Simulated scan of single mutants.
Amino acid sequence: MYLEIHKETEERMKKTIGVYKEELAGIRAGRANPSILDKITIEYYGAVTPLVQVAGISAPEPRLLVIQPWDPKTIPLIEKSILKSDLGLNPSNDGKIIRLVIPQLTEERRKSLVKMVKKAAENAKVAVRNTRRDSNEKLKKMEKNKEISEDERKEAEEETQKITDKYVEEIDKLTLKKENDLMEV
């Protein structure tokens, strides 16, 4: 009966990890990675459109991103969106493609990126803990409705805690890896 709750809890926590991984991919290390542009959108024919849907993005060199729009008229829109973003990159174009040179990270910028990573990690942990709380509330409700016994509830809560610990540990590992990537020179 409470196995469904554990399954749902685990699914929600997996989604949290997925969102956290996407967030980490958007925080740039010193190397060019097309995923840092995932959150960039442009106003294209009256609709807000993700950059990846209007251009090809590649990293031909470790410190260079190349954006090749399928419609050259979108170049000014793409440049404007990149400049408005918090990426701190200056696009340059030759009328056909946009080049983004990824500058070497300063020590100060690295530290501020690490702070961003830690904040994102804490948000992910809060989401995991909220999922645990929701699961435990459902178990208490089941006990109150005489669907499960007190012992079964306690056992199920222990299992929920094990699942929570597993995902918090995964968040910690991802965070440490990203911090190490950022602090590499």
Rank of each mutant, 00 (worst) to 15 (best):
L182D: 00
S81N: 00
K15M: 09
P34S: 03
D86L: 09
R99C: 03
K84Y: 03
I17S: 08
V114I: 14
A127D: 11
E43W: 04
G95I: 02
E122M: 08
L87C: 03
K144P: 04
P91M: 04
R31V: 11
E79K: 04
D151W: 08
K96L: 11
T164D: 07
L3Y: 12
S112Q: 13
G56T: 07
R28P: 02
L139H: 00
T41G: 03
G18V: 05
E22S: 12
I17F: 01
V185P: 08
E147L: 15
E143M: 14
G56L: 06
Q161A: 09
I148G: 10
K73L: 12
S81K: 04
K141V: 05
K119L: 14
T131Q: 05
A127I: 01
L105I: 11
K141P: 00
S35M: 09
A47K: 14
K39S: 13
I98W: 04
A120N: 11
P60M: 06
K146M: 03
A127N: 09
N33E: 11
K141S: 13
L182M: 09
R28T: 07
E179W: 06
T41Y: 11
N136K: 13
E22P: 01
E147N: 00
P76I: 06
K96H: 08
K119A: 15
T41E: 11
E147G: 10
E8V: 10
V128R: 08
P50A: 07
V19Y: 02
L89N: 03
K14T: 06
G46A: 11
N123M: 13
T131G: 11
I5H: 07
T74S: 13
E79S: 00
K119P: 08
E143D: 11
E157K: 11
S35G: 12
V185F: 08
Y45D: 10
E79W: 06
I102T: 04
P69F: 00
V19Q: 08
E108T: 09
Q68M: 04
